[in-house]
């Protein structure tokens, strides 16, 4: 069976764009087979109208089966998982959307925001802490290397913040439509 691997990066707030892309691939006969970090594996089949949906859940191991079974019963086939992102596909056009009210849709995005926020705390702490000792020039580590590490961490923190802000904007948009 013909397979193809594509490397592509989607940020947390681009889940709808990612879904649309996967659907487009399926429309051209490339069906999502596996999901990995920044990489997607597709298998070649007939062009199909498949809907893809990404869910975000903080699901415990013992709750996993219940969660996946419920979705399967509702017509959503489980494709794969990336951290807490779950990928589902529906072949039948009759399968009901995963989220059918604004409240639960917002709840999903808030779960994402919470995780990103929590991830950003140690970064902030590190950056602030090192900025202070850095300013005191007490470190024996070469100046340039410290700067580089700090710079990279700052970029990571910035990316996290942008993600949080854009997801927050999404939440606002959904709530306005409420």
């Amino acid at each position: 069976m013909e397979k193809k691997r594509i490397f592509r990066l989607f940020f947390a707030w681009q889940d709808e764009k990612e879904q649309a892309w996967l659907e487009q691939m399926a429309a051209h006969g490339w069906i999502l087979d596996e999901v990995g970090f920044i990489q997607y594996t597709f298998r070649k089949e007939q062009p199909q109208a498949i809907r893809y949906r990404l869910d975000y859940q903080d699901v415990k191991q013992n709750e996993l089966q219940e969660y996946l079974l419920l979705f399967a019963d509702a017509g959503w086939e489980y494709i794969g998982r990336l951290n807490n992102w779950f990928y589902f596909a529906a072949k039948e056009s009759t399968a009901v959307e995963i989220y059918t009210d604004a409240h639960s849709k917002v709840a999903k995005y808030k779960r994402v925001m919470r995780t990103l926020l929590v991830a950003s705390f140690p970064l902030v702490y590190y950056l602030v802490f090192y900025f202070r000792s850095f300013a005191a020039r007490g470190s024996s580590v070469p100046f340039l290397m410290m700067s580089l590490i700090q710079f990279l961490l700052f970029i990571v923190w910035l990316i996290l913040m942008i993600n949080i802000v854009r997801i927050w904007a999404k939440v606002q948009k959904i709530e306005k439509g409420m």
Binding site: L70, F71, W76, Y99, T100, D101, A107
Partner: peptide, 11 residues
């Protein structure tokens, strides 16, 4: 009312 699986799961 056609409820979504995700909506139900959260509820």
């Amino acid at each position: 009312i056609l409820m979504g699986a995700g909506t139900l799961y959260g509820a």
